[in-house]
Amino acid sequence: MNTIKTLLDMGGYGIYVWPAYILVAGILGLQWFLPWKHWENIRKTPKPSMDCFVAKSTPRNDSDDE
């Protein structure tokens, strides 16, 4: 308990040291989480089907060539 108190107090500088570490950890954690979450959403989204392009194509009529 005393060790934790000493660590948190930091010789009177704890009020400056810990907010600095928490700020950096919080913002960098969020900054990593957002693109990771975005990438996970992209991976989970099904790819659009190519059937629409197939349906639009016209079959070749060989009789026209002659």
């Binding site: 930091m10 010789g11 009177g12 704890g14 040291v17 600095a20 570490y21 950096v24």
Partner: peptide, 18 residues
């Protein structure tokens, strides 16, 4: 701990890399 800045210098371990 730093002889002049005491424990307060530990902020530099996140400040300098940033």
């Amino acid at each position: 701990a730093d002889y002049l800045q005491g424990e307060g210098f530990r902020i530099l371990y996140v400040h300098v890399p940033c």
